[in-house]
Nucleic acid binder design. Structure first.
Length: 534
DNA sequence: ATTCAAGGCCAG
DNA sequence: CTGGCCTTGAAT
């Protein structure tokens, strides 16, 4: 595992962007066109279809834990049969292993038996889900991960198609770059195509959950060939696998402190009754004060925007990450953890953008420029949204007992910005800032025309038009739905610079940390910071 | 009726 | 303890 990690050190965010620009297969509504359901590695029967070597059912993936052949989705992701069994036994029987070496044993097919400690560690690192092991041992049926598996399959299928397309184009005309929208060498993201095609990436998950394995944007935007490993977990001094959190009872609060009302105890109706623990993270997309926007008065544009929001996924990702990062740890570096969460959120932003109207039609170069400029604004805005509309608490108790300051995420790690942040939030609250406003504002941040000139956007016109359309829609919306809020539209827009300045300070701070070497490297986050400084 | 991920079984 | 194969059963 270490070797691979080393060879990947030249991570550049280019892997995020696929050659094909925005014309992917993800449907606007967020629904994904599944096409023929993809089968896992049909038992090599594919020989009949002579040409197209491995495209058929393609994706013959390897187990992210040991590299053996995958047998299906198990406990959250595609793994081999043996790791499935191992994970199950470990969790069910609350096994406690110890590592006789440095807790960083290399796990592969031939050596996986040698160190169960490291094997289990790796299971968690790649995102196998404890809660998918059933406390009651009930057999059969489906669990809450079903839909996730489905989405994951769809993504992989899509990714495969893209890869195929790209490969064909490459084969067809090597000199012809018209297919690719980015000009090699013009941006830090540029040198992508060849790399992608040549080494068929063995994807390993960024963090956890099949939804992020390979992390969402990476798939949506192209593919991944980097393993954003988690060095953290391997170097804690005094660790052992502490009893596996099994047993149904007290685990609602495994991650969340009991103080998290909405997050902790809310409905778990959608969760399988058999699943063993943190159903905790399901939560309603509650709009406090019942301010659910009257969809009748909403423009179709905004309605689509709102429908595409998937906060639940966001939360699952967040908690999945917090869980996997702390499961087996006495104490983790909270700043580092925060960076990881930010990084993951950033991935989500990119993913969202890539599938969004206006943005998705842009050339990759333009997309990158817009994102480079707006990512931190969007992170801040999203945090505001999560707090305001989904009751995201400001703090949560990690699995290992540490307190994790969630608010810090919105401050990009700068505690002193809390006042500013709260100030902005309060102002928005006064304006009855709702989910529709949020999503529109997010578009405005992304398509912000203020920087078109500076940043050399090619398709300026398209961006401008998108911006204006959203602006119009938002204006209409505020007027018709919130006539009682004086000048809501303008007041909201006036807050954008404030968000931006907050975000800019956050970026600055992160950049410093990065230069000090105290922030994790090889993250999209740092990549973004870096890109801007150039 | 079919799928397919979860649990169970048991030879090695 | 491992891991390949078998049985289950909710979701589709």
């Amino acid at each position: 595992m270490h070797e691979e990690a080393a060879s990947m050190s030249n991570l550049d965010a280019s892997y995020l962007f696929s050659p094909g620009g925005g014309g992917g297969g993800v449907l606007p509504g967020g629904g994904v066109d599944m096409g023929p359901s993809y089968q896992l590695t049909g038992p090599a029967t594919s020989l009949t279809t002579g040409d197209l070597p491995d495209t058929k059912d393609g994706i013959e993936e390897l187990c992210p834990v040991c590299g053996d052949k995958v047998s299906g989705y198990h406990y959250g992701l595609l793994t081999c049969e043996s790791c499935k069994g191992f994970f199950k036994r470990t969790v069910q029987n609350k096994k406690v292993y110890t590592c006789v070496a440095e807790r960083s044993c290399h796990i592969d097919k031939t050596q996986r038996k040698r160190c169960p400690f490291c094997r289990f560690q790796k299971c968690l690192e790649v995102g196998m889900k404890l809660e998918a092991v059933r406390a009651d041992r009930m057999r059969g049926g489906r669990n809450k991960f079903g839909p996730m598996y489905k989405r994951d399959r769809a993504r992989k299928l899509q990714m495969m198609r893209q890869r195929q397309l790209a490969a064909q184009t490459l084969r067809g005309s090597l000199g012809d770059s018209s297919m690719y929208s980015s000009q090699p060498g013009t941006s830090p993201f540029a040198n992508i195509h060849i790399k992608q095609e040549i080494q068929i990436p063995q994807v390993s998950s960024l963090t956890s959950s099949p939804d992020s394995s390979p992390s969402p944007i990476a798939v949506a935007l192209g593919q991944v060939n980097s393993q954003l490993a988690q060095p953290a977990s391997s170097q804690q001094p005094t660790l052992q696998i502490v009893g596996v959190p099994g047993g149904g009872g007290p685990h609602t609060s495994m991650i969340m402190g009991p103080e998290n009302k909405l997050w902790g105890s809310a409905n778990s109706a959608t969760t399988s009754p058999h699943s063993l623990s943190p159903k905790a993270f399901q939560f309603d997309t509650v709009v406090p004060g019942g301010s659910a926007p009257p969809s009748s008065k909403m423009s179709p544009l905004i309605r689509d925007f709102v429908q595409a929001i998937d906060d639940r996924e966001w939360q699952n990702l967040l908690y999945g990450l917090l869980q996997s990062q702390t499961y087996n740890q006495c104490e983790v570096d909270l700043f580092e953890l925060m960076c990881k969460v930010l990084d993951q959120n950033l991935f989500s932003q990119v993913d969202w953008a890539r599938n969004s109207i206006f943005f998705k039609d842009l050339k990759v170069d333009d997309q990158m420029k817009l994102l480079q400029h707006s990512w931190s604004d969007m992170l801040v805005l999203d945090h505001i949204h999560q707090r305001m509309h989904n009751n995201l608490p400001d703090e949560t108790t990690l699995h290992n007992g540490q307190k994790f300051d969630l608010l810090n995420l919105g401050l990009l790690g700068v505690p002193t910005l809390a006042d500013h942040f709260n100030d902005i939030t309060a102002k928005l609250q006064e304006l009855k800032f709702d989910i529709s406003d949020y999503i529109c504002v997010k578009f405005l941040l992304l398509l912000n025309p203020a920087f078109l000139d500076v940043r050399g956007i090619t398709n300026r016109k398209h961006v401008q038009e998108g911006y204006e359309q959203v602006q119009q829609a938002l204006l209409q919306y505020t007027i018709s739905c919130y006539p009682e809020v004086q000048d809501k539209f303008n007041k909201m827009l006036q807050l954008l610079p404030e968000i931006h300045s907050l975000a800019a300070r956050g970026e600055e701070h992160l950049y410093h940390k990065h230069c000090n070497g105290s922030a994790p490297t090889q993250t999209l986050l740092m990549e973004m910071l870096h890109a801007k400084k150039k």
